[in-house]
Nucleic acid binder design. Structure first.
Length: 723
DNA sequence: CTCTACGAATTTTTT
DNA sequence: ATTCGTAGAG
């Protein structure tokens, strides 16, 4: 066996982690330090050197993309297929467990997965049924609450009924929601995790079976795990030395959705026989970029402590551009990308990273003007598009008549004369008699409660679904999908030019048929589940980002969150202003502020060669022009790494005709000016020093005067210090 | 049932 | 500025 292939490409720290034995490992992997490589090599090491069976390998990630990448790289190194290993997302693995043991998990065999849109819809409908004003109590809030509870491992029965009226109401809704999901046979994302936890927790036999099976458990992005995920892991690994977790406390940016950095500390308590390995050598960025990253993150408290270093040279300084407004900012960025491309680089190597999606707009406009192709990440994903969801809803209803969420979605899409009145009546019956919407509709027709016209329309709908199922019973999956799209009326509906972007929508529907065909092809029969049901779960669990147009050479636009895990030679960190980044909502809360700072750290460490940071003095916010000021994060950066640029028209031209008097200068230069100091200038009046840059004859300072900011060369300027 | 007009909200995202 | 959802008119 050739172990050099596994070991040789690793540095000392990586090797220590990969080859460790008989203990749990906590790998603190800084940005760009080869964390995926360590995971991949570790797994291969276990198989090839320690003769661990691939069946015994469990590896969990947060995204399908990460899981795919890991599997791919393992297969490459192993030179065989890795299908015996369980490599997947927390949700994917939980789903797999629940499918295998649906009976023990007390779930219907063909349960369906509810994505968060579906969940919100369902909650909204529930609130309406309970006569709760959705204006006063937005479904979003309930959704948030329920998921928060589930992520903490709490069911409604675990919550104590308090006297607080509001808490009482939340609890009641939670309870009703559980009943509704149970009755309709659907499972939301948080439920997948909670159910999988309960399954192992409650069933000793099953638990032991999986404990025995998974002798090696690997976790990626450990800092992003929430409570239930952590508890689930510990169920699988009780006091054993087989957990290999990789994470970076400095890159924990998902606290707001329940991730607990504390899990890293819990891990250390829980698994005393563990070793910590820090991966601090960075293979991605220049020295200057890393110094900036270290400089910013050290302002956070309670870190595990890590300091990135590189063998690379410092490289270029970080360019800071103080734009006049958001348009100027965008122009600057596009101008710079132009120069980058003109000197022979690719557009796709350049990324524009912002704090919130709304900021993409200005950049898109300028990029369009410059005729430069770009791609904005984070829009609607394939399976989230309305036309796709509608088509899927038909399929889901065919698979399961009790799927209220789906029925609700398509009962009048395309319109077929079933209006609000009729729908209300159905809901009313469903609620009062604890029927599914489907059964309630039947009830209304059988009991002849509805007006003739409505009854006819409703009956036609019910018949349509029955007929679709009958007619496609013998079909293959993709044929089924095609038939349903065509005969549900959706195709005709989207063919009308009234529907906006109808061509795109039809294109997408055709793509769904392709996706179904591809799914049948790739999918190995999953334990007794119908192919349709399996495909529907796949659609819920896979957002469908995978084969997004690997189009031509595009500038990349995305939020800082989306950028995590990626790298680009040229990075623009834009909108670095107080109130934007850090965001307004985070400024007064220390924990939130530190998370923003970690986000900033993530942003900086995306850059490989060159980083630009920009901010605007004025920004159009909610339609109003607002004065802005540079972010505190900019001030926290080691100033010697920065070179600040101002819009051309605002830079006061340094006079370069005469040689400055070095001697005279030197006497004064050392301690004369400080940042934040008030000074007075003959012509411009008094102002505050914002930035000091350069030394000796080249020293210049940025002063913010009443009406404008100016760069002044201290060697030539008469300034009086004001106290 | 469909269309328009008005008011309210507006960090970040995966599964 | 823009999007999104709902109320009221057509």
């Amino acid at each position: 066996m050739d172990i050099t292939k596994i070991i040789a490409p690793l540095n000392d720290a990586q090797r220590t982690a990969v080859t460790a034995s008989e203990k749990s490992m906590l790998v603190l992997a800084g940005a760009g330090s080869g964390k995926t490589r360590v995971l991949v090599h570790r797994i291969v090491w276990q198989i090839q050197v320690n003769a661990v069976s691939p069946q015994s390998i469990l590896a969990v990630t947060f995204t399908n993309k990460a899981a795919r990448e890991m599997r791919g790289r393992i297969e490459m190194l192993l030179e065989t297929n890795a299908s015996a290993m369980w490599i997947g997302t927390f949700h994917g693995i939980a789903h797999r467990l629940l499918r295998r043991h649906s009976e023990q998990a007390r779930l219907p065999k063909d349960f369906q997965v509810l994505d968060s849109n579906d969940q919100q819809r369902l909650i909204k409908r529930l609130l309406e049924d309970l006569q709760i004003d959705t204006k006063e109590l937005p479904p979003k809030e309930i959704q948030w609450f329920i998921n928060e509870q589930k992520d903490a491992g709490l069911r409604s029965k675990h919550l104590v009924d308090s006297d607080d009226k509001n808490a009482k109401r939340f609890l009641r809704i939670y309870r009703e929601y559980e009943i509704l999901c149970e009755r309709t046979g659907v499972v939301d994302f948080a439920e997948l995790l909670l159910r999988a936890y309960e399954l192992l927790h409650d069933d000793e036999h099953l638990r032991e079976q999986y404990q025995r099976r998974f002798s090696q458990i690997h976790v990626d992005e450990f800092q992003d795990t929430n409570k239930i995920q952590y508890d689930w892991l510990t169920l699988l690994s009780p006091n054993r030395d087989n957990l290999f977790v990789v994470g970076d406390d400095d890159q924990a940016i998902y606290g707001w959705r329940g991730a607990k950095i504390e899990n890293i500390y819990n891990f250390q308590k829980h698994y005393p026989n563990h070793e910590v390995v820090k991966l601090e050598q960075n293979y991605r960025s220049t020295g200057a970029i890393l110094k900036a990253a270290n400089g910013i993150i050290q302002n956070n408290q309670g870190r595990m402590g890590k300091s990135l270093w590189t063998e690379m040279a410092d490289g270029e300084k970080i360019t800071v551009y103080a734009a006049h407004d958001e348009k100027d900012e965008a122009k600057y960025v596009v101008e710079r990308i132009k120069l980058w491309v003109e000197s022979g680089n690719k557009r796709e190597q350049a990324a524009i990273l912002y704090r919130s999606n709304a900021q993409s707009r200005q950049f898109e406009e300028q990029l369009m003007l410059a005729k430069m192709p770009y791609k904005v990440y984070g829009g609607l994903r394939f399976f989230d598009r309305a036309e796709i969801k509608n088509a899927l809803a038909y399929l889901r209803l065919i698979a399961n008549r009790n799927d209220d969420a789906s029925l609700d979605r398509i009962i009048n899409t395309p319109t077929r004369g079933i209006g609000l009145k009729t729908l209300d009546a159905i809901r009313e019956v469903a609620h009062s008699r604890q029927f599914s919407l489907w059964d309630a509709a039947h009830f209304l027709i059988d009991e002849k409660i509805l007006p003739n016209r409505a009854a006819t329309a409703l009956f036609a709908f019910l018949e349509l679904i029955e007929k679709l199922e009958r007619d496609t019973a013998a079909f293959e999956l993709s044929e089924k999908v095609q038939f349903v799209i065509e005969h549900s009326g959706l195709m005709t509906f989207y063919s009308q030019d009234k529907v906006e972007k109808s061509a795109d929508k039809i294109e997408n529907l055709k793509e769904l048929i392709n996706a179904a065909a591809a799914f049948s092809f790739e999918n190995v029969e999953e334990e007794g589940l119908s192919e349709l049901a399996a495909f529907l779960s796949h659609a819920a669990l896979e957002s469908g980002e995978s084969q997004a147009d690997e189009f031509d050479d595009c500038v990349q636009l995305m939020t800082l969150h989306t950028a995590k895990g990626l790298e680009f030679p040229l990075v623009f960190l834009v909108g670095v202003e107080e109130g934007i980044f850090p965001s307004q909502q985070s400024i007064y809360d220390k924990a939130k502020l530190e998370e923003e700072r970690r986000l900033c750290y993530v942003g900086i460490t995306r850059a490989m060669q060159k980083l630009h940071i920009t901010y605007a003095d004025n920004r159009l916010l909610y339609g109003k022009s607002t004065a802005a000021s540079k972010s505190r994060f900019l001030k926290e950066l080691p100033q010697e790494l920065l070179e600040e640029v101002r819009p051309k028209r605002e830079v006061s031209r340094p006079v370069t005709t005469k040689t400055p008097n070095f001697l005279a200068f030197k006497v004064e230069s050392d301690s004369r000016y400080k940042m934040g100091q008030r000074v007075h200038h003959e012509t411009f009046g008094s102002g505050v020093i914002q930035t000091i840059e350069g030394e000796g004859a080249k020293e210049r300072i940025l002063i913010k005067f009443n009406r404008e900011s100016r760069w002044l060369m201290t060697a030539y300027t008469e300034l009086t210090v004001v106290n």
